[in-house]
């Protein structure tokens, strides 16, 4: 497919677009609690970025770029999401009680670390991992 689809324009664009889209996806993930966004959308944005890159180049290259295998990503995500629910149990609160640790960062304002944030990161990883797994599998079957 790389020869059929990979035009020079697309390749150049993909090189620039991928980091931008990834950055955007993290941005969408982190702002999600107050503004439109969240782990699910952010995961999809990230997946679109990688899918675009895959069109421009090929599946193998995308895989190396991902570093972490998609299935591992899904596993880590599920673990993080589950762990964020179990965490409050250790401080004698019911399962899935949200814990908040607001931190004042100099020059950046207040940052709200919390178990919902960990949970949302878990969702992000699961969505990104799952979509990439499917897209890569299809592309590889193609080749």
């Amino acid at each position: 497919m790389s020869t059929a689809m990979g035009s020079l324009i697309l390749r150049t664009a993909a090189r620039f677009l991928l980091p931008l889209l990834l950055l955007f996806s993290v941005f969408v993930l982190l702002r999600g609690h107050d503004e439109p966004g969240g782990g699910f959308i952010a995961g999809l944005v990230g997946a679109v970025g990688f899918a675009l890159y895959m069109f421009a180049f090929d599946a193998a290259r995308t895989k190396t770029l991902l570093v972490i295998p998609p299935v591992v990503m899904v596993g880590v995500g599920l673990f993080a999401a589950t762990a964020s629910g179990i965490l409050p149990v250790f401080v004698n609160l019911p399962f899935f009680t949200a814990l908040w640790w607001p931190v004042e960062l100099p020059g950046f304002g207040e940052v709200k670390f919390s178990t919902p944030l960990i949970f949302d990161i878990g969702v992000y990883l699961v969505v990104l991992g799952s979509v990439m797994k499917i897209v890569l599998a299809l592309a590889e079957a193609e080749e």
Partner: peptide, 21 residues
């Protein structure tokens, strides 16, 4: 209660987190 202004996201990750899980 949930320190979030985006209700959709608050429902997903906090109020009904078990469903999302």
């Amino acid at each position: 209660e949930a320190h979030g202004r985006n209700i959709v996201n608050v429902i997903l990750v906090d109020f009904r987190a078990l469903d999302t899980l």
